[in-house]
């Protein structure tokens, strides 16, 4: 009996080391559209992201309104006419780290990672696969990646008058610093 209590205690003590959650509400995601006539850049510094290093679950939630553009009018058009942030306030990503066993979240270093999951923007959900790097530090984990999205996949159309000003494919660059959740 003593032994079993001891083993239960051991399991409880050891478990938190595996089931570690990390999160932030101030991650950064930028996007860049490089069209022949105009380059559009936007930055969001209020990105929600959480990760469970034990199961490899990785989720992101972005308030579309928090994207800041260089031109105020562009920001307005982005929200009003393209992503329709009144109707679809958030973009979400629900994914899982594919190569979880290659990443040692306990020892500092840079680990290439692949995350697969469902990305929902403008009410449309598409499977995506993103390759990036996890940099494990003593204080937390930095998730960085760069990938491309076809905006047509998410039901966002570019009107004839602005072709040449908005690219079909936009570059998405997450740079998210996650801290352990206590």
């Amino acid at each position: 009996m003593k032994k079993s209590i001891l083993s239960i205690l051991l399991v409880i003590l050891v478990t938190p080391l595996f089931a570690q959650r990390y999160m932030t509400k101030a991650g950064q995601v930028s996007f860049y559209s490089d069209a022949p006539l105009e380059k559009i850049e936007a930055l969001n510094k209020q990105v929600n992201c959480a990760m469970d290093t034990e199961s490899g679950l990785f989720v992101v939630k972005i308030l579309m309104r928090s994207f800041v553009f260089e031109k105020a009018l562009m920001q307005e058009h982005f929200n009003e006419e393209y992503v329709e942030s009144d109707k679809y306030p958030n973009a979400t990503f629900k994914g899982k780290i594919v190569n979880l066993k290659d990443i040692k979240f306990s020892s500092p270093g840079a680990y290439p990672a692949t995350i697969e999951g469902d990305l929902t923007i403008h009410g449309k959900t598409r499977p995506v696969k993103v390759k990036g790097v996890f940099t494990v530090t003593n204080d937390g984990i930095i998730a960085r990646a760069r990938f491309y999205l076809k905006i047509g996949d998410y039901g966002i159309s570019i009107p004839g008058a602005v072709t040449g000003k908005i690219a079909e494919k936009v570059e998405i660059t997450p740079d998210i610093y996650l801290k352990p959740l206590k």
Binding site: R21, N48, A50, D52, L57, V59, T92, K94
Partner: peptide
């Protein structure tokens, strides 16, 4: 996996 994607989202 103690935490589902949705419970992570609820954070």
């Amino acid at each position: 996996p103690l935490f589902s994607q949705d419970s992570l989202m609820s954070l």
